[in-house]
Design a protein around this nucleic acid. Sequence first.
DNA 1: ATGAAAGCGCTAACAA
DNA 2: TTGTTAGCGCTTTCAT
Lengths: 336, 336
Amino acid sequence: MAREGRNPTISDVAELAGVSVPTVSRVLTGAARVSPAKRELVEAAIAELNFRPSAAARVLVSRKSRTIAVIAGNTSRYGYAETIRGIEIAARAEGYTVMITVVESADEEEVDRAVSATRMQTLAGVVVLKFDPPGVAALHKLGTDLPVVALSGTRESGVPQAVLDEAAAAEELTEYLLGLGHRTVHHVRVPPSRRVDGRTSGWKRALTKAGAPVPAVRDATWEPKSGIAVGGELAADPEVTAVFCGNDEIAMGVMRGITEAGRRVPEDISVAGFDDHPLAELWSPPLTTVRQDFASLGVRGFQLLKQAIDDAVVRRYSSERPTLVLRESTAAPRAR
Amino acid sequence: MAREGRNPTISDVAELAGVSVPTVSRVLTGAARVSPAKRELVEAAIAELNFRPSAAARVLVSRKSRTIAVIAGNTSRYGYAETIRGIEIAARAEGYTVMITVVESADEEEVDRAVSATRMQTLAGVVVLKFDPPGVAALHKLGTDLPVVALSGTRESGVPQAVLDEAAAAEELTEYLLGLGHRTVHHVRVPPSRRVDGRTSGWKRALTKAGAPVPAVRDATWEPKSGIAVGGELAADPEVTAVFCGNDEIAMGVMRGITEAGRRVPEDISVAGFDDHPLAELWSPPLTTVRQDFASLGVRGFQLLKQAIDDAVVRRYSSERPTLVLRESTAAPRAR
DNA sequence: ATGAAAGCGCTAACAA
DNA sequence: TTGTTAGCGCTTTCAT
């Protein structure tokens, strides 16, 4: 009999409906046919008791889970947050639950901790945000006994992955800047995920193709403010007429540094960003950038994972080309 | 014997270590003393097999879970994302896993869906982001048989909650603006969680106290762009000399609208925001605002939840007063 | 189509 | 301190 003070179980439902426990299970899972009469009884009992099956018991016996994990180096920065949002939307649509694991650093100990914490759960699969070194490290530690999909800006061998082709977009943006008449384009990099970074390599490729000089790369952190100092240095160099920044937030910092140094954007120096942050078009001047659809990256990532979970014919890649967004922070250089 | 192709279980460990299954369990949970000799054997076996206990089995038998759920109307907007980050950090430090449930709307059907999905898992507790109507609705549907903590900007009766005292901060900001010499302060509101909203009520209180006229509230959406049109309207009214916006992103939109209308900030119109978004200080002019520590709100929320989970003496409230940040988007009105 | 029986991997209660 | 026994709430055989 259903006791008070605890959640109803499947046997409470079975008893109330006057059927066996497996029959209730059949109604729940839809795995086998149940006569309409019994099904109705069972459904009434479920509703009356407000019964919800225990996910833990289901997982234990069926060895199948409706939970996926997302491993990420960060959850709140724009690209990360939007990507996770996309994953969650796609997962929810398919009835999957999402749990989050944050990997703070690429230290072996921290990566082990994160992977262990993740793998304690019985999971249907894992999506790894391979945007940074912690993500890359976690991906490698994860093992192959579980469906895994990586999300990133550069296609790489190994697990299936959904990609935003950053290199192609960065190349296009750099070519646009050169086409405006700039002799070359300087580059401020955000912390790269590996030695090579799609945005940086696309930039370099465009310069090389055009026979333009390749200036030394300048590094910024993820903090928008770190762009201010870099902007100041850039403003001090009269050779600099165009700057391509690794993301919009850094670009905003760089623009402030340039402005504080008394030079104007885009009249003296053109500045372009990357991502199309929601505030990029509100900035003064509105930012020329590359639109990255992170939410769609997350959706595509989950879809790839779903295929792997279902043992479907697994497409290993899903690539999308971010698009150039021309606004007012870039212009032709002034005549010298 | 440990078979290939499946995860090792506690009995594999027991067998390899030459002890009983419960002894392994004791080592795992630390619940009872085990002789150093056996403990070492067990630990060696665990390491050799790379054994990880099944969370599902543990939950099933112990009825205790190390997973908490976060229910939120949104995951990627600044305040939400930072709050979730804080919850995750605090949870991780205590060995808890975080799952996310998004409630898209306050529709009964959607709220039921979200709550059901959440409650399928055996949870230690739930943190609800009560920043918007979906969050409020989910909180009410959640039931009382589970530790629940709400996070919001306004203290309210009911479940324990961690709060950022928005009303007090909004009042302080409005007083500051009035103190600058503005006859009154106009207000642009972001979508409120209920009829009353802390930011709006603090603003109104300050005006009333000062005997200043209370202008009609203008509404914006969460989209920063929605501020542009509002800014244009405000700029067209010569009576408007100071505007308090519900968040920084809207303030940025409003400032753009004002600028596009040919008026200047702060010379013609002062504009203040709320939140201290990371880009607020980089904006031109840098934004006067109220710093809200969302990450700390999340941490405090988890701590409250942890106390409830542990049946400790439960503090029901944790309140923090956001602080005024004075920058350059506000100034005294020009002499008329 | 339905039920009886078994058992997923662990912890709790008890005995030794 | 340690082992034996029982059983958490389900799904999965296997009969019927």
